Computed example of a mutant assay.
Amino acid sequence: MTSIDDLRPEVPHAARIWNYWMGGTDNFAAARAAGDAVAEVYPEIVAMARHSRRFLIRVVRHLNGEAGVQQFLDIGTGLPTMQNTHEVAPGARVVYVDNDPLVLEHARQLMTATDRVVHVHADYHEPERILDEARKVLDFGQPIGVMFMGVLGYEPDLTVVKSIVDRVMAAVPAGSFLVLWDGTNTTPAVVEGAERLANSGGVPYVLRSPEEIDGLFAGLEPVEPGLVQLTGWRPDGDAEWLDAYGAVATKR
């Protein structure tokens, strides 16, 4: 059992800040303070957090329902709030990856209910370890939906980010998909929000240009409509402006 000391509630961990922005309750005062500091100068962050989950839901429904993907590797999953990958794709096998012990504690409860959903306590900087663990659950002879959802900005070096993505995608078979979104440096307000996050004790987050995010899909075949703002990917409502871009692409 994880103790409160293990959880380090005084640290504004990313998963807990995002849980707060998304209206969840699995967070501590430090995370709420960091979240409020960002929202003070960039209130759109709350909409971004909630639209990011709606993007996940639309993508997973498409991959599971239309493309027939029955396996997902969700790297940097965060804490449960709205519908999660295994709930959007019932019957699919899902490997979640996160490095927050609070996420792991939730995962332990989830794993008592199903054997098709597994959580790996790891950092995305160790992709080979993640892949080794995923192979215990997923069939690497069949297509896999690989997901990096708003997490890659925690690595400041874009070359390292590209290496991580490439190493994971090299391991999955043809017919697999990469799903990726990230915050972008497209307005002064979001840049100020990122500065507030770092100044409040949160892990600094590097905002990149849409062109830099697009480069992470190099060598893959984009799924229509390609790289767009999150609300513009097969929208289910008004296309609200967001400083966040995402796409889906397949490995041929």
Rank of each mutant, 00 (worst) to 15 (best):
T77Q: 02
D74R: 06
G78Y: 14
N64K: 05
D115I: 00
H86C: 05
R16A: 03
L63C: 05
Q142V: 03
G215E: 14
G35T: 08
W181Q: 11
R8M: 11
K162I: 06
G193P: 11
M82Y: 14
E221V: 09
V117Q: 03
G76L: 02
L178T: 09
F217V: 00
E105S: 12
S176M: 12
D139Y: 07
A170R: 14
L242T: 01
L152R: 11
T250Q: 15
A29F: 10
N99G: 09
W18D: 03
E44N: 11
G65L: 00
Y20G: 01
E155G: 06
R252V: 05
Q71V: 01
R93G: 02
G68M: 04
I164S: 05
E10W: 09
V248G: 14
V228I: 08
A14T: 14
L216G: 10
D5N: 14
Y205E: 02
V206C: 07
M48G: 03
A247N: 12
E240L: 13
E66T: 13
M1H: 08
R16N: 08
T231V: 04
V95G: 13
K136F: 00
P9Y: 10
I45N: 12
T77F: 05
V190R: 09
D6T: 03
L180V: 02
H125Y: 00
H86Q: 08
G246H: 14
F72Y: 10
A122T: 04
A198H: 11
P204T: 04
I17H: 04
V88G: 02
T186I: 01
M147A: 06
A249S: 13
Y205A: 07
K162F: 05
L63P: 10
S176N: 14
D123S: 07
